[in-house]
Simulated assay, not measured.
Amino acid sequence: MINTDIATAHLHSHISEQLTTAVILLDAALTVRYFNTACCAVLGLGEKRLSEQHFPALFLHCDISAQHFSGALSSKQGFGVSDVQAVLADGRHLLLDISVTICENPAGHLLLEIRHVDQQRKISLESLQQHQHLAARELIRGLAHEIKNPLGGLRGAAQLLEESLPDELTEYTQLIIAQADRLRNLVDRLLGPYRPAQRISANLHQIIEQVRQLALMDNPCNVQFSRDYDPSIPDFTFDPELIEQALLNIVRNAQQALEQTNKPTICLQSRVLHQHTLHGKRYKLVALIRVIDNGPGIPTEIKDTLFYPMVSGKAGGTGLGLSIAQTLIHQHGGWIDCDSWPGHTEFTLYLPIADTED
């Protein structure tokens, strides 16, 4: 006679092996006690690397920490998180959906279901961020118009008033004029660059080198720069001045973020991508520039709004540098993305090289 418990266990094991979702069983110490075949494919790890391993130790970084898992066990409440950033020990970056369930049998165990977020999800997120960015820009343009009109009148009135005041009182009208000018300059910076891109055929690496030289000339933290260029990137048409400004804004931000970092480093990297999609369009060739630093990482609370104007992780920062950079790259049909965790921040600039596919 067949033991029904054993038969049921074999059936459950067989079913789990047919799943495309990664299934992992963790004990109270967060040690891997079981995993299905799909787990190796989703995480890109072999059976020996997974078996009997402390699950958090598989990652250099993961948005879900050991405390989250331990807290779920203590409260006996599972949870689910989408778009979890995870970095494996070999440096590979994954975007995952993770669902955590508390097991009744065996008791004190966690069942993890992990799905790898595919490229389509990233494209959807990029499209959403693009619409949010454009909506924010339009809002700012409307506000700027409403601010600048009365501001001009206020400044003009102060100038007229100054003509009829004794000299000892003109310091007050000068203060009004100076503050009006300061506010106008801030609004102009919020609006960002207004001239259209003037495209010429140029070499991208020359622009990256110019940015590196400018950054080295003003480098109070003695940041060490390294280069990793792809010589296969051809010359293509873009506005060198606008791309230089966008890249310099990002590099300057990285330098400022490294002020409290021991042995601060920035890596400038270039690559060429084939058949890549940007803003819903598929391009034969896309140039990629990465700015990678070893700083503290971007605060979690501003990650989703990082490219919005007036959003900054620095005390006293205006938050305009990244917003302007994103606008400049948008003018070229490109995009800026960011991945960040403690000890690693990576800004990636995408610029179309070849025409879209028919």
Rank of each mutant, 00 (worst) to 15 (best):
N3D: 15
S16C: 01
E17N: 05
Q18P: 00
L19A: 14
A22R: 03
V23Y: 01
V23N: 05
F35I: 11
A41N: 08
V42D: 04
G44C: 11
E47F: 00
R49Y: 01
H54F: 15
H61N: 13
D63R: 05
D63L: 02
A66K: 08
Q67T: 12
A72T: 04
L73W: 04
G78A: 02
G91A: 05
L95P: 00
C103E: 11
E104W: 06
A107C: 08
E113W: 05
D118A: 10
Q119M: 08
Q120S: 14
I123N: 08
E126W: 02
L128K: 07
L134D: 05
R137C: 06
E138Q: 13
E146C: 02
K148Q: 15
N149Y: 14
E162G: 04
L165F: 06
I177S: 09
A178Y: 01
D181K: 14
R182Y: 10
Y194N: 10
R195I: 09
Q198I: 08
A202N: 11
N203A: 12
L204K: 12
V211G: 07
L214S: 14
L214G: 14
L216T: 14
C221G: 04
D230W: 06
D239C: 02
E241Y: 07
I243V: 15
E244T: 11
R252M: 15
N262D: 11
P264I: 12
C267V: 13
C267M: 12
L268N: 02
Q269H: 15
S270Y: 00
I292T: 05
P296D: 00
T305S: 07
G317F: 14
G317Y: 14
T318D: 11
L320N: 02
L320W: 01
H330Y: 07
D337N: 07
D339P: 00
L351F: 04
I353P: 10
